[in-house]
Design a protein around this nucleic acid. Structure first.
Lengths: 308, 308
DNA sequence: CAACGTTACGCTCTTCGTAAAGATG
DNA sequence: CATCTTTACGAAGAGCGTAACGTTG
């Protein structure tokens, strides 16, 4: 059993059971891939792929299990390589962060600025997506770190660390009647059309639940994945905006006013998610701590170890 | 980076940093091992082993991490091999169980009997040891399954499943005054010299704690790791025995009488422990269920998946 | 000097790529 | 018949073992 053979079956599976594509992706010849897969199947004495004549048409039950395990092995090999890099070039490498729009736009910038200043040799990449996409990317080891608020604690492969809490606010166009009608309540919000996050997104489902508990069903005229889109439509007078307080910027959002709504909704917690089995580079610990000072190396290591 | 290289560094570490011994254990030549380790270190661009001239005298910090990861990789390769065996020879293989004396002697026999009847092709091995030794063996993948009562839930690498509960009894020589002095209490037990389990062993520490809570400090004249030893000395009149109820056999223990002590001590739970990342053969599920019928394949898989 | 690790070298086995042949839809 | 997989074969390369050399305590 050779590592190459595991790489080959993984790539074939990833390329939709197309051996030719896999060979190309691996910068090798197609017959070589074919051969190695046969050898592996012969050694294990079972079929990994279902075939119809010469075509691969599926993955067998044992094949599925083997593919999972193979991924694990290859990830761990990556980790070993990382250890080498960490100890010889501890200030160069790459960091890929998966996160949602709101975090990327309003919460990460200071940490990112500090990071590129402290670790100029590290290539930083940010992938944006829905919370579940964020989680999936970390699970698939396409991202080193995931930052999101929802749907991220349910993956057994991930360790989640509470990063910070936040709450919501209402934004309205200047001169809106709600500005004088204090204090703000859920009932008053529900009288107006509401523009807010897409339900799949940060805190979306929690908001509807909070309204529903009071028997309220506001008119959600528009749901977006993007706080800037929400604010744009509020400016246009489409309705009032309900979004993360951190997404309101008094300097920039000149046509809008903000009303704190922290007392109306339970606070949400944003988490940092890491694969349990990943080996973290020094600068990754650095980034996490810049984002949440209480998450120092010890805390993160303890969380990783606690259930590895 | 080759799998062989990982095997080599693992074996060298295991053999106390002796390359020659490692080469022998791996059935290969010593220079080959030396060479491959050098190549690996060169590729990773760091030292795995500390050297004094040509002697290996220690493991470097990155080396320690790499060795851990290498073990993980090699274990996972073992698992893949197992998958092959499971699907081609699903009724042959081996099962190694690590457990304590009391479990092996009084609780496992029916399950073992049933097992060898149902799976005659599987070679069964039982390793006996203290609870911590049991746990260590499972962690080191020297045993597939660990069965013990204490000190086994603290290993993050292991998943523990509650197997069954049990409690204690007092055994006394025939005609002992305690037999007529009902009901049995802790105070009455403490009046006599006590023969019981070694403190490191099943329920030992729990018993002393229970006595101490009542301000009692019985005279433990002998502590043993073995229920049969305890009973032997009780027969000899050294004191009264305090042991697991399952360890009393009315047919065999002819010179002894048993007094239930379940009401005096909190019940203990015996757990089955498995490495989180191990691939279980079908017959392993079979054995576990024979031992504890509620632990069917679904339950075990759920527990393994829940935190892998 | 005895035990241990490294270097040197020739041999073997594996792997890879190219070319050709066989299946599939 | 275009696409995809397998078979065949020759060349390059990696790993292994023996033997000789260098170090360590």
């Amino acid at each position: 059993m050779k590592l190459h053979q595991l790489r080959y079956i993984r790539e074939v599976a990833r390329q939709g059971l197309n051996v030719s594509l896999a060979a190309e992706a691996l910068h090798t010849s197609q017959p070589g891939v074919s051969k190695q897969i046969q050898l592996l199947e012969e050694e294990l004495d079972l079929q990994i792929f279902k075939r119809n004549g010469k075509r691969l048409i599926g993955v067998t039950e044992p094949g599925r299990i083997i593919l999972e395990r193979a991924e694990q092995v290859l990830r761990e090999m990556e980790n070993i390589k990382r250890v080498g890099e960490e100890f010889t070039h501890d200030d160069t490498g790459s960091l890929t962060i998966a996160t949602t729009h709101t975090q990327a736009r309003y919460r990460l910038p200071p940490a990112v600025t500090g990071f590129i200043e402290k670790y100029p040799g590290v290539r930083l990449t940010i992938h944006q997506g829905s919370p579940s996409q964020v989680a999936e990317q970390v699970v698939a080891a396409e991202a080193d770190i995931g930052i999101a608020t929802e749907a991220i604690a349910d993956y057994p492969e991930l360790v989640c660390l509470p990063c910070y809490q936040w709450n919501r606010c209402v934004v309205v166009p200047k001169g809106h009647p709600l500005l004088k009608d204090t204090p703000l309540t859920l009932e008053k919000i529900a009288r107006y059309p509401v523009v807010t996050y897409d339900f799949a997104f940060t805190g979306g489902s929690l908001m509807t639940r909070t309204f529903a508990e009071k028997g309220l069903h506001p008119n959600f005229v528009l749901t977006a994945i993007d706080a800037d889109v929400i604010k744009t439509y509020v400016t246009l007078g489409l309705g009032i905006g309900l979004l993360a307080k951190m997404a309101y910027d008094p300097d920039r959002d000149v046509g809008l006013e903000m009303l704190d709504a922290s007392h109306l909704f339970p606070p949400s917690t944003t988490y940092v998610a890491i694969r349990r089995d990943s080996y973290l580079r020094g600068y990754m610990y650095g980034f996490i701590q810049m984002l949440a000072p209480h998450l120092d190396r010890k805390v993160v290591d303890a969380a990783l170890k606690h259930s590895s």
